[in-house]
């Protein structure tokens, strides 16, 4: 650290302003007690550029991409940053790369997820239900979702966000403002998230034990939706059952015959195999079988010896000589 200090001072003098297509926006951090003096004037660096996704998404042409967002960044925080300190551009919404606690991860079918990649990944509850049939469970809505157990979200360190502005002009204005601020060396202050610290954890301790009534309602709603969706899924399965694939085979899927289950078939197969083995010719019936077995046994022993020898050699290489401890 000692060697780093002077170099750091130098860095701040020649702080880079751009990298690749990104503008580097330094943020001044709140001064808090208890921090080491060396870090009193530490800055946070945002990398900002126009959003250019590979596949076009709704609103991508009026969005900015920000890399390395602070861990306590929230939609309100970013909105306030642009509104109050970067020219007052109006933000429609902010889409973050990551969230803690993470978004609900549903299991999906392969083609369904391909198709969905086009649509922007979003909160499950906002999505229309029939658009995608998840592989299991249901995508919860307000009613069927479990009560939230955290008061606010956090971001992973070094993650990114897409800020969607109300229109293209606002986006352009915001980017210009960022570039200007960097050029002028204007101080932009990061205020930090709200409801952190003791408050956050105390609230979690309460939230994680939701009232039984609330919980019961949510479970009921979920199971109702689940039954509905399960019917839909069964239809898809039925479809898969009746349709041969390119090689002409019909995939065996769950729910075919009422009574025949895949596992049962497998079990039966194993049983048959077992019986076949039992009734087959014994291993030591012919002389050649004995001979071969002996040979195999010898080979096995020899191989074992070779392996052991190699192990001991390796051991010697690692540990040096075998000498009694003194």
């Amino acid at each position: 650290m000692a060697s780093e200090k002077p170099s750091k001072a130098k860095k701040q003098k020649t702080a880079p302003t751009t990298v690749a297509e990104f503008t580097i926006l330094p943020l001044t951090l709140p001064a808090l007690p208890g921090l080491p003096d060396a870090y009193a004037d530490a800055k946070h660096y945002l990398y900002v550029k126009q959003h250019e996704p590979k596949h076009s998404t709704p609103g991508h042409d009026r969005s900015l991409f920000i890399a390395n967002v602070p861990i306590d960044a929230s939609e309100t925080g970013i909105r306030a940053l642009f509104a109050e300190q970067l020219g007052g551009s109006r933000v429609e919404r902010v889409e973050f790369d990551s969230a803690i606690p993470a978004l609900t991860a549903h299991k999906r079918f392969q083609d369904a997820s391909d198709a969905k990649a086009e649509g922007k990944e979003k909160r499950g509850k906002k999505r229309k239900r029939d658009a995608d049939v998840v592989a299991e469970g249901v995508v919860e809505d307000e009613e069927s979702a479990l009560p939230r157990i955290w008061s606010s979200e956090l971001r992973k360190g070094g993650s990114g966000a897409v800020v969607v502005f109300v229109d293209r002009k606002s986006m352009r204005g915001a980017l210009k403002e960022v570039q200007r601020a960097v050029k002028e060396g204007r101080e932009i202050v990061w205020k930090g998230g709200e409801g952190l610290g003791v408050e956050r954890y105390k609230s979690h301790l309460t939230l994680r034990y939701p009232p039984p009534a609330v919980l019961q309602t949510s479970v009921n709603a979920y199971l109702t939706q689940f039954t509905a969706l399960e019917n839909k899924r069964n239809k898809i399965r039925k479809h898969a059952r009746s349709e041969p694939d390119e090689e002409g085979f019909i995939t065996v899927v769950r729910g075919g015959g009422r009574n025949v289950r895949l596992e049962d078939a497998e079990k039966k197969k194993a049983e048959l195999e077992e019986r076949r083995k039992k009734n087959g010719i014994k291993d030591d019936f012919y002389r050649f079988q004995n001979r071969e077995r002996r040979k195999e046994e010898e080979l096995r022993l020899r191989k074992g010896f070779e392996r052991d020898r190699k192990r001991v050699l390796e051991m010697r290489e690692r540990r040096g000589r075998v000498v009694p401890e003194s």
């Binding site: 951090l29 808090l32 080491p36 530490a42 602070p70 952190l196 610290g197």
Partner: peptide
């Protein structure tokens, strides 16, 4: 430096110093 500041913001009153 920024990470220390982040942790300090996150921990709030739990932290006496870093």
């Amino acid at each position: 430096g920024a990470i220390c500041n982040e942790m300090r913001r996150l921990g709030g009153d739990l932290i006496s110093r870093i």
